[in-house]
Amino acid sequence: MTERLLNHRAEGPASAPPLLLGPSLGTSCALWDEVAPELSARHRVVRWDLPGHGGSPADLIGPGATVGDLAGLVLELADALGVERFAYAGVSLGGAVGLHLAVHHPERLSSLAVICSSAHFNGAGPWRERAALVRREGLAGLADSADARWFTPGFTVPGLVRDHRDADPEAYAACCDALAAYDLREELARISVPTLLIAGREDPATPPAHLREIADAVPGAALVEIPGASHLAPAERPEAVLTALRAHFDGDAARGMEVRRQVLGDAHVDRAQARQTPFTARFQDFISRYAWGEIWTDPTLSRRERSMITLTALVAHGHYEELAMHVRAARRNGLTPEEIGAVLLQTAVYCGVPAANSAFATAQRVLAEEDGGAG
């Protein structure tokens, strides 16, 4: 018999680090439409639908369901995809699933982001009432008021509202049962994975105070508040959410930017950042992650050694503007003018005298600027 799983959508290289994205109650994986494609440049992104939402079978859960049951379905999906350990981000109920995984299955998570969510959702009573209402009357009435609960005034995403209207009432009510029974406040201190909390400053359902409560309880957690965002921040403020998630999940980029500044100097990096456009943004991101976040941070070679290799490669290919920049970097990395001269003399033997002649002219100009005539 074929295993029945949560409906899901996978994007990005199969060999990339896996990142699972969980939805809010009443939505589908379309909640991540403005964020997932960008995240998939560096991750194997897997978005999933709650039972009875989007394409997931409604009978995967039933009355009296718990957040733990939903977390179990997520782990079954990960197992079926061959994913042992993964990063996770979730919105609202999807965020609660992430917190449950971090508390009860920490070995499966590499890092966690919880968006517009809570360690409790204002008590069991309102959720039991909503579950009873949906079982009695269906979802049409709730869907009519979705914009007010989900977005700031004047903003909407019609497709998400339609997903709310089309969800299975019994499965939706079972998810309400799960929220009614959910309260992780006493267990938050057990969370050990790197954790980011993202709050929508205009969110009436899970105000920033709910995320701050989690951040204060989880060791080392960080909190980001997004102005102009309500409950479905990835749909309403995707750029801000994407920036926060990248900084959290992609440690190579942050480490790479730090090393890039140390080697090339703040002035150069600031100029490069100022010139960045949407067209060049992914290339700049690539440089920070790969060149500076992985290669230059590899401890096998010292920065002095890397500078000498880089100078040689730039001379060999005639990249004299880059050479000027890396002569300055070589000085920051501890090379003396005499050592830089020795490297360039070596290039005269293996790269050719004309190339070395141009390189010496470039280096002499830079060293005169940097060292007041030394070299």
Rank of each mutant, 00 (worst) to 15 (best):
R201G: 06
R201K: 12
D203L: 03
P204D: 15
P204K: 13
P204C: 14
A205C: 14
A205H: 11
A205F: 08
A205K: 09
T206W: 04
P207Y: 09
P207W: 05
P207R: 15
P207K: 14
A209V: 11
A209Q: 14
A209P: 05
A209H: 08
H210P: 05
H210F: 08
H210L: 12
H210K: 15
L211V: 03
L211R: 04
R212L: 11
R212P: 05
R212W: 05
R212A: 12
R212Q: 14
R212E: 15
R212M: 09
E213P: 01
E213L: 14
E213G: 10
E213H: 14
I214G: 06
I214Q: 06
I214S: 07
I214E: 00
A215Y: 00
A215D: 02
A215W: 02
A215Q: 05
D216G: 15
A217R: 10
V218P: 04
V218S: 04
V218Y: 01
P219S: 00
P219A: 00
G220F: 00
G220E: 01
A221R: 00
A222H: 02
A222Y: 02
L223F: 01
L223A: 01
L223V: 02
V224Q: 02
E225A: 02
E225G: 05
E225L: 05
I226C: 01
P227Q: 03
P227T: 04
G228M: 12
G228C: 10
G228V: 08
A229N: 02
A229C: 07
S230E: 10
S230W: 07
S230T: 05
S230M: 03
H231P: 08
L232A: 12
L232I: 11
A233M: 06
A233G: 08
A233W: 01
A233P: 02
P234W: 05
A235C: 12
A235F: 04
A235P: 01
E236S: 08
R237N: 08
R237E: 14
R237S: 11
P238N: 09
P238H: 11
P238F: 12
P238E: 10
P238M: 09
E239P: 14
E239L: 14
E239M: 15
A240W: 06
V241W: 01
V241L: 07
V241R: 04
L242F: 13
T243A: 15
T243H: 10
T243S: 12
A244H: 03
L245K: 00
R246I: 10
R246N: 06
